[in-house]
Amino acid sequence: MIVSFRFDMDELKRDRKITVYLPDDYYQQKKRYPVLYIQDGQNAFFDRLSFCGVSWGFLDYVKMMELDIIMVAIPCNFTGFKRMDEYGPWRINQELSYQETQIKGKIIGGEGIKYVEWMVHQLKPYIDCRFRTLSDDTAIVGSSMGGVISAYAALAYPEVFKKCAALSTAFWFYMDEFAEVIESHDYSLDNRFYFDLGEFEGCGDDVIDEWYIESNNMIYSMLKDKMENLEYHYFEGAQHNESEWRKRVPMFMDFLYQ
C-alpha cells in the first residue's frame, strides 16, 4: 500500500512529495513497524519513475522476503544543483564545485545539515505520529551523494538513525568533515553501518575512480575500531548506476534487518 503527501521543509523554505510504503495488511494489524528512509526516493519503488528507468526494487524485495517494514521515499531536488546542495552537509570547495558545475564562482553543497535536521525534527516525528512505527528502529539508505547525506545522518545522529546503508558514497568531497564527525561521536551495539563501492564509480574518469576507492577505504579505517556492526564491500567491475545498486539491496537489507 502506497500513501503520498506533500510535506513542508520549513528551514529550507520548500516542500517535498513524500511516498510511504505500508505493508499490505497494515490496517488489519495493530503491530508497530521499523522505518527505512530512502534518499533519491524517486528510484525506490517503480521503474517508470526512476531516473534511469531502473528502480532499486524495494517493493519486490520486501514482498518476496515478507519483511514487515514501513519505507519512506524522499525524492531528490531536481532544480539546478539543489540535489548537491541538499545532500551536501557542508559547502564543497571551489575546485570541486567547478568540476561538478563547470560554472566559475559557483559553490555547491551546504544545505545538508538543515536537510537532516528537517528529517530528524519534522519528518520523522510526523511519520512516527501518523503511522504505527517502532520509533527506535529507524534506518536510512542512499547512494552517491544520497550516500553522503545518509552516512552523515547516521554518523552525526546515531541515536536517531541507528541503521544505515550508504552505497557508492562520494566521501571524497568531505573527508576532513567526516573525520571530525566520526571522531566526535560514539556508536553502540544498536548501530549498524553498511557501505560499499564499485571499481568504476567515476563514470569514465579514472581519477575519480581512485578518489572513491581511497576515501571509502579511509572511512573504513576510521570506523572499524569505533563501530562493531560494520560491513564494507568492494565490487570489481561495478559501475555507478541504479542497476548496480539494485543488485545490492538483498545484501544490505539482510545486514540491517537480520
Rank of each mutant, 00 (worst) to 15 (best):
R6M: 06
R16C: 05
K17A: 07
I18M: 01
K31G: 14
R32I: 08
V35T: 13
Y37Q: 00
Q39L: 07
Q42V: 11
S50Q: 09
W56A: 00
L59I: 15
M65S: 14
D68F: 01
D68H: 05
N77P: 01
F78G: 00
F81C: 07
R83L: 12
M84N: 07
M84T: 01
M84A: 10
M84E: 03
G88N: 10
R91E: 14
Q94V: 02
E95H: 13
Y98P: 01
E100W: 00
Q102G: 08
K104A: 12
G105Q: 04
I107S: 06
G110W: 02
P125R: 15
D128L: 13
C129A: 06
D136E: 10
I140F: 11
V141G: 00
G146H: 03
A153F: 08
E159Y: 10
F161P: 05
K162W: 00
F173L: 09
M175L: 09
D190F: 00
N191S: 04
C203V: 14
V207S: 00
I208Y: 03
D209A: 05
E210V: 05
N217V: 13
M218Y: 03
S221E: 11
S221P: 01
D225N: 07
K226L: 02
M227S: 06
E231G: 01
Y232I: 09
H233T: 12
K247R: 03
V249L: 02
M251V: 07
F255P: 01
Y257G: 11
